[in-house]
Design a protein around this nucleic acid. Structure first.
Lengths: 217, 217, 217, 217
DNA sequence: CATGAATGAGGGTTCATTCAT
DNA sequence: TATGAATGAACCCTCATTCAT
């Protein structure tokens, strides 16, 4: 998904997509290790396998690279969430499955989420707004999925808070790993948080067991 | 609380404490505006009212400044939490009050918390560990407060998760303000999260109303 | 007049002439605005309507472009001067007319003359010499025109100096416009300089009035 | 004469003056050889005998260096002109002496004047205006000197033109040296231009001879 | 203890030029 | 002939840190 928010002096759009994918991949790899500020554009270009000049044919500033990274990570997460959520009917079982999927996705994306959290201040305001909108959209996906089940028990604002909590609790698995991952396995964390979330939603926990049993069959 | 983790070439410990306080205050002021990387040591010294040379008499690297800031913020929050928690008997009412206090503290400390979240990668590993330990200690304060009330209903791990959630949800008020503070007032947020937390803890929500009534009396 | 001093890898001489005309026109347009150094070869190619690759088929370096521009401007001025001077008999009236023509030409070519003056150092020595010779030729045109009239009153060196002065005073109208064009209209400047030049040549100024009268008839 | 138009982060004004003198001298030396654009800030610093970092303590941009150079050259010329002009009574003899002095000054400053002419476009607009005003002031010096002698024979605008011509003809000795200095010695040029100028001013040339005779006595 | 001038490695970015298609 | 993606040397400027006074 080529960003229209970042200008390139290359005309071949296929090539732009390809090279930017390389840039994003390299940048994420490096940002994970050293963060945005400690990574140089030269390193990104080198990691991507081309020269610094070439990098700047596809991107206008270092901040553009950061934006591309944000966009790519958000897109990836968004699409996965969407695939999970939109295909399944609203039901307690499905919500549990969704939580499970989401937390596992967050586990996989730990370091990427760290980047999101830590470098957002480095984005120019305009680009930052775009990114924040993307995150808002993701939260809305959860809301869509949960709303039908609890619309009668909770006010919209209550749901809003809960949905935010779920979203954040997923991210925290990676973000506070130095604490959480010393205490829990991923499975434990998911199970505990699921229980917590169901409590928040006033839904009987027995569903968790059911899912487990189903899996065993 | 003067850090023994940061070296100074000045012998007079009172002076060191005084100068470092100035450094911390200036650094926080500037980090809030521009972040750690965009703030120069010169600016910190100038803001503190002395020369760059003097700054380096009390600190060895820029990262030292960041560490002092972390320590100071953590100390501040820790002491406040401790004051609230340790003086009151464990009871649902007191837990609700504690949550209220904590969330209001987080509201007041929004920008500081942002710094904590965003710059931790910039700390050298050794210092980072110290900081993370400090945060762990804070979470333990919550655990102490809540444990007595729910020890029989929840496993230790369940409580651990919940306590982490509370801690994080407070921080998120400032961290996700672009989203949350558009939707909720602080009072609303506290009330909704309190309800959520009580649900998580399987405690009857009626307490919230009680507290409100008490306040009105 | 296609330059034989600049190499091209294209064989078709008509095409070379055509493309170079495009290059020159674009370059002048851009140099006027931003000067030689601030203009990129890419911009020149783009302005000319073809790709950067094509530009380099007709020119070997950016300095070649500058040289072509010099040559083109000089050619243009030279041809105009020649047309004026060579067709008319030497007479005071004609000299006055020539001065008038020349100053108006310089008015029209202000920005081009600015380029000539400001970028000559950017030409490689060899090309610079060619350009300077072209300018010398132009000065000689004036000398040809004036010599017959004053050969008996002035030494050759005296005439040489005067002719140079005339040449320079014309260029200065554009070059020192920030000063001159605030003080004089073009007509005023021409009239004043004509008087000055006639004084230099020891020619009775009454001719100026004559010319004016002739025009009115 | 320390420029108040260029900021420095050094507080010691004596030092600023000293270092800037070094910068100016080095820059002129290099600009003479390679022009402004081909000279790097590193080279200027190196030539001045200090590091690139130090250079940027006394200057904020490369354009600042250029401005300092302009200012210094203009100051130098202005002060010399002033010294010559203001100390002597208006008389034909003194005007001739002034022209002589001015042309010899221009001979000495050839390369500096070249810089003035060629790089003015590289100054930011604001600084350019300051520089142009300085040049205007210089022209006014000539006007002051000549005015008393010819106020009754010429209109103010006529004098304005003539004064400009004198100013320019002096600069041209250096600027068009490739042509003029091949044809004339400096003494010849001065003598010829003096005659020309006196003609422009309708003053009897015999004064020139007088001065020469006086010198011989 | 305090100062602030000096340092220079290093970073982001540009752009003339080349060459495979 | 024409194209335009790729290259990388080179440039301007910043800023953490040092050290002589």
């Amino acid at each position: 998904m080529r960003s229209t928010f970042v200008q390139s002096s290359i005309k071949d759009t296929t090539l732009v997509a390809k090279r930017r994918a390389q840039i994003i991949q390299s940048a994420i790899y490096l940002f994970k290790q050293k963060g945005f500020h400690r990574t140089t554009t030269r390193e990104i270009a080198e990691q991507a396998g081309f020269s610094i000049g070439t990098l700047y044919e596809y991107v206008r500033t270092k901040e553009d690279v950061l934006f591309l990274v944000y966009e790519a990570i958000n897109d990836y997460v968004y699409e996965h969430l969407q695939a999970i959520i939109e295909k399944s009917e609203p039901s307690v079982t499905n919500i549990i499955a969704m939580i499970d999927h989401y937390f596992r996705l967050m586990d996989e994306m730990q370091e990427e989420v760290l980047i999101l959290y830590q470098e957002i201040k480095s984005l120019p305001t305009e680009k930052r707004d775009i990114v924040l909108q993307q995150e808002r959209d993701m939260v809305q996906l959860f809301k869509q999925a949960i709303m039908p089940l609890v619309a009668h028990t909770f006010t919209e604002k209550e749901i809003e808070v809960i949905v935010n909590n779920i979203f954040v609790q997923g991210q925290m698995w990676g973000f506070r790993r130095w604490l959480l991952q010393r205490t829990f396995t991923l499975d434990e964390y998911i199970q505990l948080q699921t229980k917590t979330i169901l409590n928040m939603l006033h839904i009987d926990e027995s569903h968790i067991a059911h899912r487990k049993n189903e899996e065993q069959l």
